[in-house]
Structures are given as C-alpha cells and as structure tokens.
Design a protein around this nucleic acid. Sequence first.
DNA 1: TCGTTGTTGAAACAGTCGTACCATAAACTC
DNA 2: GAGTTTATGGTACGACTGTTTCAACAACGA
Lengths: 204, 204
Amino acid sequence: MGRPADPARRERTLARAADYVLANGLAGLSLRPLAAALDTSPRMLLYDFGSKQELVAAVLAEARRRGAARVAEDLLPGTATPQERLRGIWAWISAPERAPYVRLFFEVHADAVAHPENYPELRDVVTEWFGTLGATFRDLADGPADTVTPTMVMALVRGLLLDLAVTGDRERADRAVDRFAALLASGAPVTSPSAESGTASAPR
Amino acid sequence: MGRPADPARRERTLARAADYVLANGLAGLSLRPLAAALDTSPRMLLYDFGSKQELVAAVLAEARRRGAARVAEDLLPGTATPQERLRGIWAWISAPERAPYVRLFFEVHADAVAHPENYPELRDVVTEWFGTLGATFRDLADGPADTVTPTMVMALVRGLLLDLAVTGDRERADRAVDRFAALLASGAPVTSPSAESGTASAPR
DNA sequence: TCGTTGTTGAAACAGTCGTACCATAAACTC
DNA sequence: GAGTTTATGGTACGACTGTTTCAACAACGA
C-alpha cells in the first residue's frame, strides 16, 4: 500500500549527474550547482543517494560502466599486427570524444594516490585491463598469465595521455606511439617464460 | 627610515609551507590549518603572499625548485648502457623518498588537465625534460633534436609511477621497466632521421 | 620623542558547504 | 473518505572558506 516508488527517477538523475561530472570535473563539485543544472534540488539528491559521497561513488560507477561499454563495442575487433592494434587503441583512447573520461580518470587517480582508502576498488580496475590488453597482445606476451606486457602498454598509453592532455602536442604523442609500436615489433620475444625470482635491477 | 623589512620570514614560511603541501597535498589545502601547522596566522600568510592563489603558485615553484635540485645532484652521472641508465632513473624516481613529489605531480597535472588556464608554465616543464632525457638517451635518439625518444621514455615512467602509486605492486612495475629496457636495447635504431610528414597511423 | 614603516593579533564579513528538520503534496490500498 | 508510503519544497543549522578591517605593537631615523 502507499505511493509506489519510482526508481527510474534516481536512474535519470544519475545519468545526468554523470554527464555533469564528466563535463565539469569532480574537483569543485557541490550539490547546489549540480542540482540546479539537473533541474532538481540538493534535497532530492540526498534523498536519492543518501550523501554526497555515495552520489560521487554512484557517478564514478556509472562513468566506468559507460567506458566499459564503449570499450566492448569499439575496441574488440582484434585485427592485424600488434602494432596496428596498439595504434588502434591509441587512436581510440586519445580521440577528443574520450577526453572527458580521460580527464575524470586522471582526477580520480590523482585523488586516489593521495587518499587510497577512499578507492578500494581501483586496484581491481587495473587488473581488469590485464584481461583486455593481455588478449590483445597475446602474441607478444610471456605466457597467458603475463602481466608485464599489459602493464608496459598501459603505462605508455596513460603517460602519453597525460602528456597529450597537458601539452596538446598530438603529433609528438602520435610519433611516440609509432616508435613504441616499432619497438614492440622488432623486440626480443621475451627471455624466460617462468622467471627466476630476482632483484628489480636484473634484466628479464 | 622606519622599521626594516624582513624578507627572510617569507622565505622561512614558504619552505615550511612547501613541506606541508608535499605532506598533505594540494586538494583540501586551506589557510587556517596551514597557518596553524606553521605556527603563524592566515593573516600573515596573506600579508606575505597576497592571496591563496599566489601562495600556492609560490609553493609549487618551490617544490619544482627542490625537485630540479635533486635531479641535478642525484641523476646526472650518465653511466653505462641506456638500459642501465633507464633503470637508474626509474629506481630514483620511484623511491619512497620521492613519493610526495610524485603525488604532488599527479595532483597538479590532474588539475591542469581540467583547468589548463591556471598552469601556463606546465608545457615548458615538459619540454625542459627533453634536454635531460634527450642527453641521457642520446645514443638511442634520432638526432640531437629528437623529441620522440624522451617523450616515449617519459610517458612510460609516468604511467608506471601512476600504476605503482595506485596499486603498490612494485615488482610488476619493476619488471615492466626491465622489459622496456630490453626493448630499447634490441630496438630498431630508428628509421629516418628527418621523417616525411604523414598521418598518425603511418609507421615511422 | 616623534613620525614612519613593517609586522602582527582579533574579529568580522560575506559567502559556500553538506546536511537535517518540518511540513506538505501526490499516489496508492482499503 | 481514512491510512500509508513516497516525493518534494523550504529553510535553517553549524562549520568552514578566503579575505578585509581596525587596531596595536615593533623597530628604525631624525
């Protein structure tokens, strides 16, 4: 009995809130301007999400969901050589349409470096990519459980994204990707499948 | 006539403020807690720096100055092979003592991605590193004015720093550096000294 | 001692923040 | 209609923000 709940309203608000955060960033986010932009009230935001912290968590989850969906539909076709696949990944992730996600990514990670306790799930996000990238670069990998190749590729792409976002020098970034792709192509096909445990300064 | 000015006070405050920001981050920085930690008052901070914005700018400049000094004295000895130099750079920058600087670096860059207008000097900071890294990897570079090699190395190191800072998985990061170093060693010594202008998807 | 310049404390200002409280309206069952 | 649950609006609270204002004190030259 009583008025029926309307969970769709929360979903609509969440979707628009994610748009807003992707457009305006997390840093200065505050309830009143957000509510105004969403044609609602701070009162309703708290009613639907409980607290600002939970709202932010929901927005980040939504953004991650969208990103994953785009990856699934845009990036899956694994074509041709590893170099071409790398260039495809780079072209996709560095496209202007992805810029809001990239911006939010760096914002979240920068805060996570300072306050890791607030982002207990970020570690898993990293390891999730191992599956995707590991599959993409299977022929370069050191066995199916190789995490080093995905780590290296991810690091280069993220570092270049940061460079590109700050300097805007796309040509230099694109050339660095090409150079790295060439290195991958000519590179040594990995030394030992099961590495002897050793110090960090010993080559593998 | 009149009481003589004491510029040393501002310098002392600045040094301690830089310590504080390196320890506590830029994100939630506010004058009252900062002043309390520095045994001074918000009044004096504004008296010495004019505004919070100028204070932050001065602190960032100070942090950059310190970082550059450490680079100059710790990192200059260019020894042995490029791979060993790369590992040296990585060991230095990823050491726990550098963690506060790395954290601040990502904090600033994340904010700079969102609000580039506040950081007009960051572009130059990037290009300054070309000199250092370009010299370090001269034997791998495509001519003395090559920016692609430094860009690639910088991207990998920064990407790995972000990974390391978030996941804490040092062994995986170290191995990725080793793998990259091996790639550099076996890599093609660059195709063309003066590249034909072309699209981003054309190999170089 | 006086005027002058630099330094400092205390308090207040105007604003924003997240959130809680209280009332009321809307939609449903009986 | 009453009873009950969900959805809102309005408002105010307490804590915080960067900054300003007013006053006083400190150190110097004359």
